[in-house]
Design a protein around this nucleic acid. Structure first.
Length: 279
DNA sequence: CCCTTTGAGTCAGCAGTCAC
DNA sequence: GTGACTGCTGACTCAAAGGG
């Protein structure tokens, strides 16, 4: 089966505040068929119907998926996935966007670092059929597609909810509080010079201990996370096509555009100018 | 010719790991 | 949480290419 794509023609030009289905599809992949490492500009959930394959988010662990499992590619996160050589997967996908998407996903077990979650084997095939049916009636298409998407998420939250905190989770929560404070700080000060030492001083922890719990929670050491975050922001600025490389560099915390160029290429794989021009 | 960008080399000091 | 060690990051410099 070749890949079957369905695009939602009602997709808004500007970012939608509401949840919005962008496209969906299905494919029986060829052996070793792969995507990436690359980034998407929308959320994309893949559900494995049969066969198997692997998925890796940024420099994280490589995870194997089989039938009945799903994974989500988050926007602006580098993801790589590949069908198995012997038993290539058959999967279907839905891609969506909207400000609500993040809030809804936060109610599920899926996170950018742990993008794999179980899913009822009947849910996705059924959704795929219903989406195709809904597509045919142009008078109700936009409402029906949206309704189906909300319904899908209600089941997903039900089947893969955020784990309820147990006794052991209390200590984890205390650690998480430190990590969340760090993340808040990094997300609001990434345009400034930040050292791990400063970060540790802000939350009142030893630098090395902070590095350890930060990596435990996010999968990355603080320095690496900050670098990744800066480059994601830089990608966003470059996409607008309105800024010089030097302006983008200074905007994300690099006073030296030369150094920024180097780090950008190292992280994203292409120089900033090439990234901008490709868009 | 000027500006922007990239590449390569060097090195001080910072960050991560390990053992405790 | 912390001390010691080590690897690596990032600042700095110079050279060069490409486009206007």
């Amino acid at each position: 089966m070749a890949a079957i794509f369905h695009y939602n023609p009602d997709r808004p030009f500007r970012a939608s505040p509401e949840l919005y289905l962008c496209y969906w599809g299905k494919e029986a992949c060829a052996p070793l068929h792969s995507f990436g490492p690359g980034v998407r500009d929308v959320y994309k959930i893949h559900f494995v119907h049969e066969g198997k394959g692997i998925v890796r988010v940024e420099d994280g662990e490589t995870l194997t998926l089989t039938a009945g499992q799903a994974f989500i590619a988050y926007p602006e996160r580098v993801v790589f996935y590949q069908a198995d050589a012997a038993q290539p997967w058959v999967y279907s996908w839905i891609a969506f966007c909207g400000d609500q998407a993040g809030e809804i996903l936060a109610r599920t077990r899926a996170t950018p670092e742990q993008p794999v979650f179980p899913m009822d084997t009947r849910l996705m095939p059924k959704l795929y059929e219903l989406l195709n049916e809904a597509e045919e009636n142009t008078a109700t298409r936009d409402l029906r597609l949206r309704a189906l998407l909300y319904e899908f998420f209600s089941v997903m939250v039900e089947q893969a909810p955020v784990s309820a905190p147990g006794r052991a989770a209390v200590q984890v929560q205390a650690k998480d509080a430190y990590v969340h404070r760090c993340l808040d700080f990094l997300h609001s000060h990434y345009g400034e010079e930040i050292s791990v030492g400063q970060l540790a001083a802000i939350v009142g922890l030893d630098r090395k201990y902070l590095s350890a719990i930060f990596k435990q929670a996010t999968g990355y050491p603080p320095q690496r996370y900050l670098l990744q975050y800066r480059m994601e922001r830089a990608c966003g600025l470059l996409k607008t096509g309105r800024f010089a490389i030097g302006e983008v560099a200074r905007s994300v915390g690099y006073q030296d555009a030369l150094l920024f160029s180097k780090m950008f290429k190292k992280t994203i794989g292409v120089p900033p100018s090439a990234y901008r021009d490709n868009l």
